[in-house]
Amino acid sequence: MGFPVSLRIDDIDGTDDIDVVSEAGDAVFTWLREVDERFSPFKAGSEVSRYGRGELPAARISPDLVEILGLCERYRVATGGAFDARLPGRGFDPCAIVKGWSVQRAAERLAAAGAGRFCLNAGGDVVVGGGPWRVGIRHPEIADKVCTVLELTDGAVATSARYERGDHILDGRTGLPATGLLSVSVVASTLTEADAVATAAFAMGTDGVEWAAGLAGCEVYAVDAGRGVVRTAGFPSAGVGAA
């Protein structure tokens, strides 16, 4: 899937039995490997690639892909086309939706297996249960600094930024890199929503901060290209690092 994944489990049904914990953790990584095989646009035989080439009739599309397609369309419409999984010349690429969706599904499997306290980190996007957990938001320009720390009990936070992959998020309205923000972090009840909203807001530029902040259940921390910081009143900060 192109990003590192780490998992910490502190409690499974009130036990610290290593076999139970290991089984739950193995199930998470098995699921994420399955997602990579099925939904990667970089693998010619994946369901996403075959769909993008028009090789799958509607009757053969899996329920999971139907859900992904619905989420892609939801955020395309909501952002006026700034977020778009079908950019000209690039083929169908739903990675911005699939990442948060798949990791949230993994977290739900952990909870169903009895995980009472856990932290699942997928390339800096985090979903937790049984907190409180303290999560640092990386400074967009200084790799070894955080710009804020937040506290989560049950929920998720996702960050879209330019510091790891450069100008990789495009504004679907122009086809050009989105450069109005240095980073935007979104807290929501699920990583499906947090990750999609963070990416969509980044694609919209500075207008995306207000859009994301207006969504029910979302809290936002953003740094714009002029290094100004916007933080919604409900953003669950536990402390502030270098700004």
Rank of each mutant, 00 (worst) to 15 (best):
G70K: 15
C72F: 10
E55K: 07
K43H: 12
E67P: 04
I61P: 06
E67L: 09
E73I: 13
G52I: 01
R60C: 02
V48C: 10
E55C: 00
C72M: 10
S62E: 07
P41E: 15
G52P: 02
R53M: 02
V66T: 09
E47N: 05
L71Y: 15
R60H: 04
C72K: 15
P63M: 04
E55S: 02
E55H: 08
L65G: 09
G52F: 01
V66K: 10
E67S: 08
E55M: 04
G54W: 06
F42R: 14
R74L: 15
A59V: 01
V48Q: 11
A59E: 02
G45W: 07
E47D: 11
E73T: 13
L65D: 09
V48I: 10
V66Q: 11
I68E: 10
S46E: 09
R50W: 07
S49I: 01
G54F: 05
A44C: 02
S62D: 12
S62T: 14
P57E: 00
P57K: 02
I68A: 08
P41C: 10
S46A: 09
G45V: 06
G54S: 08
R60T: 03
R74W: 11
L56M: 01
G52S: 07
E73L: 12
P63D: 00
P41L: 14
I61C: 07
I68Q: 11
I61W: 02
D64E: 14
S49L: 02
G45S: 08
F42I: 06
E67R: 15
R74Q: 13
Y51K: 05
R53F: 08
E67F: 07
I68Y: 12
L69I: 12
A44Y: 11
E73F: 13
L69W: 14
P41R: 15
G45C: 03
